[in-house]
């Protein structure tokens, strides 16, 4: 039996793969808060929920979540270029303008979020429906484009024909179910954040369950679209991550059940089960990517050499130093800010 990701790989490759999976997980959490939060705002707009605590909280925090999602997206972008240059660059070149359209879309999305925060409850009914729908369109387009790009980077067989036909759009069978999966997953994510901020137990649990059901359905759909070779990547060591994923989802479902029917909020249980879900998805996603890399021995060797070389260049210690330094600085700053805030609330 193969070792679970990333342990079966040579050290350098495992190191960068693990970093990619970790930083991607961080990006995913915030990207999903944005995607899920905007979807929820659409529902609330349609339901005409005014002076709504959840809506207000979402509008208040979403611009920040977007800023962080974008910033955290840069880190996996960096490691991706060490792990699989050929796939990422080729997909980026083939997708070209079509892919880069995510940038104007995100700028528009950001200003629409900000506008909704400014208008708050004073916005007219029609705007409270229309603005979230437009915003969701921008973010859904972005998320979909990443799924498209990711799947294209691995579908090496279509590259040449896509280039020959000057096609920028890739519509492989995996793209849509992938995106629906991540979109479904965004609901439990935002439900968890909203629960911690608003304590609106029942509504949050409802949204979370909706998302979990969506995840199960779209995961089945995704598996159904996969070729036998892709499915093989699930065998062996990746079984461990598949089991972790199943356990994480089941625990999350139970946790939300407690919230819904027993009115018992167990933040530690909910958060940790969710972390397991996110990490195991990131790991499985990488395991599938590795399985798609060219299987010719020289190509594999060349890739391993690239990772090896990357590991040799300097700068890691400086990075580590600043990571620790900044972490301490912000820990201290946030305590200071928190204590002043509580004092000002008291005054």
């Amino acid at each position: 039996m193969d070792l679970p990701f990333p342990f079966g790989l040579p050290f350098a490759s495992a190191f960068y793969e693990a970093l990619l999976a970790l930083t991607f997980s961080m990006h995913l959490v915030f990207a999903q808060l944005v995607l899920g939060g905007t979807s929820w705002l659409v529902i609330l707009g349609i339901k005409n929920a005014q002076h709504d605590n959840v809506a207000r909280t979402l509008r208040d925090w979403l611009p920040f979540a977007l800023g962080i999602a974008i910033t955290l997206g840069v880190a996996p972008l960096l490691f991706l270029q060490i792990v699989d240059k050929q796939g990422f660059y080729t997909a980026g070149l083939l997708g070209s303008h079509r892919f880069m359209a995510i940038l104007p879309a995100l700028i528009v999305g950001f200003y629409l979020l900000y506008l909704q925060k400014k208008l708050g409850d004073t916005a007219q009914r029609s705007w409270r429906v229309l603005l979230p729908i437009l915003t969701l369109a921008a973010f859904a387009f972005t998320g979909y484009s990443w799924s498209e790009q990711h799947a294209l980077a691995q579908d090496r067989d279509v590259w040449v024909s896509m280039y020959a036909a000057s096609r920028m759009h890739y519509s492989g069978a995996e793209v849509l179910p992938r995106f629906v999966f991540f979109a479904s997953m965004s609901l439990p994510a935002v439900a968890l954040a909203a629960l911690l901020l608003t304590r609106e137990a029942k509504r949050c649990a409802g949204v979370a369950w909706l998302g979990i059901v969506g995840m199960l359905v779209s995961a089945a759909w995704l598996v159904a679209t996969m070729s036998p070779t892709r499915l093989e990547a699930w065998n062996g060591g990746n079984l461990a991550w598949s089991i972790a994923l199943a356990v994480g989802v089941a625990t999350a479902a139970v946790g939300w059940g407690l919230v819904r029917f027993r009115s018992r909020i167990r933040p530690a249980l909910l958060v940790s089960s969710w972390l397991v879900v996110v990490l195991s998805i990131a790991a499985l996603r990488e395991a599938l990517r590795i399985a798609s890399l060219p299987s010719r021995a020289p190509a594999r060797e060349q890739l391993a050499n690239t990772h090896e070389h990357a590991l040799e260049v300097g700068g890691f210690l400086v990075f580590l130093f600043f990571a620790l330094f900044l972490a301490c600085l912000f820990a201290w700053l946030s305590r200071r800010v928190a204590s002043e805030l509580s004092r000002s609330r008291g005054a």
């Binding site: 960096l78 240059k85 690239t306 400086v318 990075f319």
Partner: peptide, 17 residues
């Protein structure tokens, strides 16, 4: 990227800060 990824990663830390 191959040559300077840790510099870039450090730059990213600063941007995050």
């Amino acid at each position: 990227v191959d040559e300077f990824h840790w510099i870039w990663a450090t730059e990213w830390l600063f941007f995050l800060a």
